[in-house]
Nucleic acid binder design. Structure first.
Length: 150
DNA sequence: GCCAACGTTGGC
DNA sequence: GCCAACGTTGGC
């Protein structure tokens, strides 16, 4: 089983929204590195840290689980969608998504600040300045370290 | 294939 | 709202 971290802006889709929905497609990812992970690497049952970005206290707020393998992200084909990509070809999908299932909220937010304070986490892409990857792998050791901060 | 311009992300 | 960092685009 693998571990991941996925970013979302709480104003757009936060952990409370996932809790309400139970399970939701994680769509709108328009970055090739992230796309490759969604399409090729994620497996059902993988555990995910749900991260709130672009908000008052950015940080990890909950845990989710991968509920499907990667499959084409239809929002790229829908001109009505804010994620529409005119260059996407229905026969050769450019963008992929997975479904993500709510597991639980953390007792408290593990802030980016707190994550940066841990030397053992200094290799996480997340804590690097200017990291714009919205989906990234987390090592088992990092996963354990982070859970102990809860 | 280089690289400047541009757009987006995301912390602060 | 600012701006640094970075990815993408497109002219050449």
């Amino acid at each position: 089983m693998q571990y991941w971290l996925m970013k979302s802006e709480p104003e757009v889709f936060g952990i409370d929204d996932l809790q309400t929905m139970g399970i939701e497609p994680w769509d709108g990812v328009r970055n090739y590195q992230a796309r490759n992970m969604l399409r090729d690497q994620m497996q059902i049952g993988d555990q995910v840290f749900f991260y709130h970005s672009n908000c008052g206290v950015p940080g990890i707020v909950g845990i989710a689980e991968i509920a499907t393998q990667g499959y084409p992200d239809d929002t790229a084909l829908n001109p009505e969608s804010k994620y529409f990509d005119p260059k996407s070809d229905p026969l050769k999908p450019r963008w992929y998504r997975v479904d993500v299932k709510f597991v639980r909220k953390l007792h408290r937010t593990i802030s980016l600040h707190a994550l940066r304070a841990q030397t053992s986490l200094e290799n996480m892409p997340l804590v690097r300045k200017g990291c714009r990857l919205s989906v990234m792998p987390v090592t088992p050791a990092e996963w354990q370290t982070i859970l102990q901060l809860e």
